[in-house]
Amino acid sequence: MTLLPIHWALIGIWGLLAAASVLVLWISSRSKKNVTELVQRTQSWWVMVAVFTLAFLVGKTVSVVVFALVSFLALKEYFSMIPTRRADRRVLFWAYLAIPVQYFWVYDSYYGMFAVFIPVYMFLFLPFASLLSQQTDGFLRAVGTLNWGLMLCVFSISHAAFLLILPPTPQSSAGGPGLLLFLVFLTQFNDVAQYTWGKLFGRRKIIPGVSPNKTWEGFLGGVATTFVLALLTAPLVTPFDLAHAAAAGLLIPVAGFVGDVTVSALKRDLGVKDTGSLIPGHGGILDRIDSLTFTAPLFFHFTRYFYY
């Protein structure tokens, strides 16, 4: 078996994870503070990277199904934490059904339908389905919140899956899988980098009204680290030239930050700390993919505009 560039990229990710785990072990053996959460977080990373790698290596169909499941879990988490109306049970059911349909367009490479199904058809259909119960108290809030959840958890995330089915280009043999790996790796790495820089050097708060732990030092340190990593990895798995690699290396960390604080604002409004308890040490699945809800569609259209 010959190793392709994306295989080397995956090996690199596992190597990085192993190195980070050794570091965490060393910290937890030395530190007198409670580091249970840090250890749990690291363990959860192993599971997440394993699931992702497995899906990725098995093939396109399995990967699309895994992204559909991620959307399902995220939407379920969202519907479970926001106020909903009993009268809208059926509407929620329709919203869930949009997931297999949306991911079928992905699987089918049907870009036209993929791009309009949720923002046009579901957008128009959900209010109609809701008014059938003839309960107008809270109608606006219900329709607004349900549509936003569907956009965030399903429409946005499905863009990551759509990257996967993009064909190879003259500049890069890695094609869609390479782009997906680039996006997901940099988005998640950026989360960790911003967190780590913030923990080590964080001083000046960046947006205390929404997220009191976020600092300028964390944000800028994360952006710089991700930027460098984007320049280094882009030639391996993407068709980007240097300028585009640099642009993507800024787009991903900045959009990731905005996605993160957007979900923070939602949680603060609802008065919850985590969106769920699915991933030990991290919280819910929405806590983990909050950045991806912003980076996936933006990175997808960036790539599509310049290369497809």
Partner: peptide, 8 residues
Amino acid sequence: SFLLVPFF
């Protein structure tokens, strides 16, 4: 009701 709607 007979329609199961997923919630955590």
